[in-house]
Amino acid sequence: MAEQHCCHQDHSAELASHHDGDAVCVDHVSFSYVPGVRILETVTMHIPRGTRLGIVGPNGGGKSTLLKLILGLLRPGAGRISVFGRSPSQACHAGMIGYVPQRHDVEITFPFNVAQVVRQGIVGRTGMFRRASDDDRRAVVQAMERVGIADLAAQPVGDLSGGQQQRVFLARALAARPQLLVLDEPLVGIDEVGQARFAQLMEEVHRAYGLTVLIVSHDLRAIVAGCDRVACLNRRLHFHDAPAGLTRNVLAEVFDHSLAGAGLGLGDLGP
């Protein structure tokens, strides 16, 4: 059962060429920070337009590195990545990618209020020395209403709870009116209630904006319900298919064996 779903050479050969229907195409990508120590080993995957992919894997398994490669913040050592048929940095400059970073990456003592942070989403789209268009300004207001933070507009971001900040950054990404929404560990530091609310919000956002969504998480259980496909990454791609096909064996291969069953709370999975 596990063999069938593991993404080995035969499967990847089929994915290697770029499909027009793909939002993201990762083609035989390898990467190392230090020569000889590969963080990613010939990873091949594609995300069809309008679908939601969750990338899971243990810490240090290369999730964040793959994310940085897709966002154009790093360049692959080997292989190719395209985002809507363009290079990642071209896609960024074209305003196609909305990014919700991991929360602790952000300096929170800044003198910015919620509306100012959400408005950051349209800065790149507007371009230097230009005024924001009416459409962009409307997109800011809509994004704040969509994620339910319109009443917080004048609050300093630093005063908000973790869950509220998460929604501010989601609104910023949506204000950019992207075609691909990328979330890096969106649930870290958020309680169970907040997580459930965030999952529901993501469901609404996906329906309303029709986006392609890429979520990276170390917590499989938290994101599995909201994804059409799951990719398990630990240096290599171990699984890339609908979540229903996930088995204990695959998880044991990707995560530390001891974690596979117990820590992830996946009691309902097959052998």
């Binding site: 154009g72 400059h93 305003g95 990014y99 970073p101 952000v106 950051q120 800065v123 789209r125 990328v182």
Partner: peptide, 11 residues
């Protein structure tokens, strides 16, 4: 505010 994120947003 956040250099990396701003780059992804096209700044």
């Amino acid at each position: 505010f956040d250099e990396t994120v701003s780059r992804v947003f096209g700044v």
